[in-house]
Design a binder for these strands. Structure first.
Lengths: 351, 351
DNA sequence: TGCTGGTATGTTAGCGATAACAAAAAAAGT
DNA sequence: ACTTTTTTTGTTATCGCTAACATACCAGCA
């Protein structure tokens, strides 16, 4: 009889993962003391802490944060939505964000929208179900419902990589149109007059669309008569598509002197296509990209581009969001902030 | 008196985000019914469901999954650790994983280890705190404690991108050493005899180290007297470092005929450096990479490489993990599985 | 009319942790 | 020795949801 009494709980306890109660029992303290020992900053007698840690180690216990966040009302999540995980620009932003969060105990919940606002809306909702303490999105274009969800979420919202006309709250970005226009003016200053733009076929990539708009605006402002736009491939366009696009460009407008590509990847594809066809770059045609990917500085000839501080966008967003979270928790009202990140035309050998 | 009673809760309730109780009250049902309405597959009268959805809409209610997972014991998380978020190979794997999870209701918790097993250990622990239903890691090298945490977690564990000697449980990958050896044999078959290897300085990138080992083994097996290894830069080495490395290689062993680079990025950097120095590729020196990044097919000349099915590694890992989760929940014992993914030498212009 | 078998909804009791307060123990001061 | 203060630990009551079981309801049929 006594034997049975001892045996049963022993078996029952080992079948499932240990909980804080198991640790507390083993260390001879209450769960609250265990909870305190596992977070830093709480006042615990050193001997007790050691005893608890021993029990934790013995049982292989790992704290359950979902349970903790339910009672503490802090999930420790920050949600971030980027268009693509395969684009080194956005990956850099994610890294910047992740790095700025390190040490704060916040964990990044990453989602990728595949450049679709509909997918973004679904992601916003599924992220919000996890009760993140802040959310970072890319760009200022959202579905009406997505926008509403963000606005009503009751957490800091940061839109990045763009300067939306009517931002939801905080912004960390720059004007893609203005950056693109700056590149046009740079080419104009170098003497090029017949300047073309290569981009994707749809406006799915809103930043790409903004760059095109900036190009058209700048070309008109400079009094260059015609704009020459090649739209080819579903955004984001690849290296290969950049190559095909430049072939079409030269076929359609043989007089063209320079091409601005929507991204460095397509610019590199265009450059290589020119090399294969023995069109000298920049003599026969100059090529410029956007984004300052590693490849633009490494190719031969190296590619003129617009340097964007991708990592900093993420990093600044992270710092802004930490400030906002802390402010809101302290009951202060946090004013909407817009951080404009820098960019610059980087002249290289291809123009 | 009565007025006060009515007012107070009204004020109190509106201050915070609405909970399921608010929705239930508004729709005139119990929270259980709301809970059922918000998940599919439950038997609910259509009229009731409509009424509940209306209340959800009116209140802007979003389900709290952390609370739900506490009681249902299912968090809906899958953790995945990759070395770098900026490497398109691993990003592809993450995408494959994410895609295979879509529709299952599972969400990816991504972490990057920066090629460090120590950082991996910390990440494993912080991921485990979120009680993921499965965990995917890159490679078979872990700290002893990391290994123990994984083994004791009580969830399916999948090691990827490698074929570990003693796997923890499931594996989806291939032998990097064998793949690298295959590339050596391919070059040997093309008549190259003085073959070099370019990689990083440390073994932090264990797959890179395996590739070097495979190279050395194959060179010895073919009876080629000397191995020529250039170690340069902290892994993962960049395009620029690939360029510097090949310059050193030619300086040190001018007789060298072919170079295998640890990745396509460094191979591209090496290629461009050769072009700048007017060393013909492949005539003066042949160059091969690893990974079949987009750049290797797009560069001019295009780069011979080993094609690895990165996306499939992630995708297969996802499918395997879904099976394992389902099996464990059904009480079945799930046998350890090893899925070997394909790879192939892709001959191109650079060799 | 009463019984069966299904569908639709409600009730109760946690899930595993932490906040907020309470109490006990130890240290310090007089 | 006896307060007073500080440090350490414990108690109780949730957090917001869902599992498991209980019950009400309805149609169909003998």
């Amino acid at each position: 009889m006594i034997l049975k009494k001892i045996k049963e709980p022993a078996i029952a306890i080992r079948s499932a993962a240990p909980t804080m109660i198991d640790v507390a029992t083993r260390a001879g303290v209450s769960t609250m003391t265990v909870s305190r020992a596992l977070r830093d900053g709480a006042s615990i007698a050193e001997a007790t802490r050691t005893r608890i840690m021993k029990a934790v180690e013995d049982l292989g216990y790992v704290l359950d944060q979902s349970a903790g966040s339910l009672s503490s009302k802090r999930t420790g999540f920050v949600a971030a939505l980027i268009p693509s995980i395969n684009n080194s620009n956005f990956a850099d932003t994610a890294r910047g964000l992740s790095d700025s969060l390190a040490g704060s105990g916040l964990q990044l919940l990453l989602g990728y929208t595949d450049y679709s606002v509909e997918k973004e809306e679904r992601l916003i909702e599924s992220m919000l179900r996890r009760r993140p303490e802040a959310i970072v999105v890319t760009g200022g274009s959202h579905t009406p419902r997505g926008r509403k969800l963000l606005a009503q979420a009751g957490i800091p919202v940061i839109e990045t990589w763009d300067l939306p006309k009517s931002p939801i709250r905080h912004v960390v970005g720059f004007s893609n149109a203005e950056a693109s226009a700056k590149l046009v003016r740079y080419l104009h200053g170098k003497g090029y007059r017949k300047i073309a733009f290569i981009g994707g076929t749809t406006n799915r990539d809103t930043r790409g669309a903004d760059r095109r708009a900036g190009y058209e605006h700048a070309v008109a402002a400079l009094g260059l008569k015609d704009s020459r736009v090649i739209s080819f491939g579903t955004p984001p366009i690849s290296m290969k598509q950049g190559g095909e696009a430049i072939a079409r460009l030269i076929e359609q407008w043989p007089e063209v002197e320079a091409a601005i590509c929507v991204s460095d990847l397509s610019a590199f594809g265009a450059l290589v296509e020119c090399q294969r066809r023995k069109w000298a770059v920049p003599k026969r045609i100059a090529i410029a990209g956007f984004g300052d990917f590693e490849i633009s500085s490494c190719s031969y000839p190296s590619i003129t581009t617009v340097g964007v501080h991708c990592y900093d966008i993420g990093n600044s967003a992270g710092e802004l969001l930490l400030r906002a979270i802390e402010g809101e928790r302290a009951g202060r009202s946090v004013p909407a902030e817009t951080i404009i990140t820098e960019y610059a035309v980087i002249p290289r050998e291809s123009t």
